[in-house]
Amino acid sequence: MSILEIFILALIQGFTEFLPVSSSAHLILPSQILGWNDQGLAFDVAVHIGTLLAVVIYFRKEVFTLLGAWGASFTGKHNGESRLAWFILLGSIPLGLAGFLGKDFIELYLRSAWVIAASTIIFGLLLWWVDVKAKQVKDEYELTLSNALFIGLSQAIALIPGTSRSGITMTAGLMLGMTRESAARYSFLLSIPAIIMSGGYMALGFLDEGVVVNWSELGYGAILSFVSAYLCITFFLKVISKMGMLPFVIYRLLLGAGLIIFLSV
């Protein structure tokens, strides 16, 4: 890959992984529209490592607290943190099962620009409607098991390119009455097992390929995706209460409409 491709693809992964605009869609589009060669599994693993490190480091206090509470829960000590940790783990199961059982179907039929255009618009409108109508009174510690499973099931829908994992989980959280900030925090924490599963699956494929990799490309990709993802999380959590979801909805609608026009020409 050229330096330009590395730079653009790594920034795309970092900035879009946690915004409700679909990172998978943006990573597929360069090859669909610009004719770029697929970046390969090794590079995908590298940029996923970068975004994983970004969310873990940003929420390091919460992560250590949740891990400690989760471990203590095996000795009978339960509190709000242990419940939240279990909800994050249980809510990740639908994504793992859907990805494992449906990977071939997704690869064959859903990784197209037309699917991306449709899902970008449809789920963007759903996000806008929920953001306007939601009560927004709960935080992540008020979730119930059924709430966690509902968000987890919605996360599995994000396997459709263009849906956005963060977008659909925030939408589900808002549907349940969560505030924007708490829905975003929960979505980001839920992304940790999601990225681990996704990156782990790609890593297995990469190892099976047995190809020679350019380690400098992977290093640049991981660093750039880490920096951009960390900045993205910081920005989003600071401004979400003031600007709401509308700017991201508008972006999704423009992106989807632009894709339809491009594909129709």
Results as ranks from 00 to 15, higher is better:
residue 147 N to A: 13
residue 173 G to D: 07
residue 159 L to R: 02
residue 163 T to V: 06
residue 174 L to S: 13
residue 175 M to S: 12
residue 192 I to Q: 02
residue 147 N to T: 07
residue 200 G to Q: 01
residue 188 F to K: 13
residue 148 A to E: 12
residue 182 S to N: 10
residue 178 M to E: 10
residue 191 S to G: 11
residue 196 I to Q: 02
residue 162 G to N: 00
residue 203 A to R: 06
residue 175 M to N: 12
residue 189 L to K: 08
residue 153 L to H: 12
residue 186 Y to L: 07
residue 154 S to R: 09
residue 191 S to N: 07
residue 189 L to V: 14
residue 203 A to P: 06
residue 170 M to H: 09
residue 187 S to A: 06
residue 187 S to F: 04
residue 204 L to W: 11
residue 169 T to L: 05
residue 167 G to S: 09
residue 158 A to T: 05
residue 154 S to T: 13
residue 169 T to F: 04
residue 205 G to K: 11
residue 176 L to H: 03
residue 188 F to L: 09
residue 149 L to R: 14
residue 190 L to P: 03
residue 206 F to I: 10
residue 171 T to H: 04
residue 183 A to V: 07
residue 164 S to P: 02
residue 206 F to E: 15
residue 168 I to E: 00
residue 153 L to A: 14
residue 167 G to I: 11
residue 153 L to P: 15
residue 147 N to K: 07
residue 160 I to H: 02
residue 161 P to F: 03
residue 152 G to P: 13
residue 181 E to P: 15
residue 163 T to C: 06
residue 191 S to T: 04
residue 205 G to W: 12
residue 182 S to Y: 04
residue 193 P to S: 00
residue 195 I to H: 01
residue 149 L to F: 10
residue 155 Q to D: 15
residue 184 A to T: 14
residue 198 S to F: 02
residue 154 S to E: 14
residue 160 I to R: 04
residue 192 I to S: 00
residue 165 R to A: 03
residue 157 I to Y: 06
residue 171 T to D: 02
residue 167 G to M: 12
residue 182 S to F: 08
residue 173 G to V: 05
residue 165 R to G: 03
residue 190 L to S: 03
residue 203 A to L: 13
residue 173 G to T: 01
residue 193 P to T: 00
residue 166 S to T: 03
residue 193 P to D: 00
residue 151 I to C: 11
residue 172 A to H: 12
residue 157 I to L: 15
residue 192 I to D: 00
residue 189 L to H: 14
residue 185 R to Y: 05
residue 186 Y to F: 09
residue 164 S to F: 08
residue 152 G to V: 15
residue 202 M to I: 12
residue 165 R to N: 09
residue 199 G to R: 01
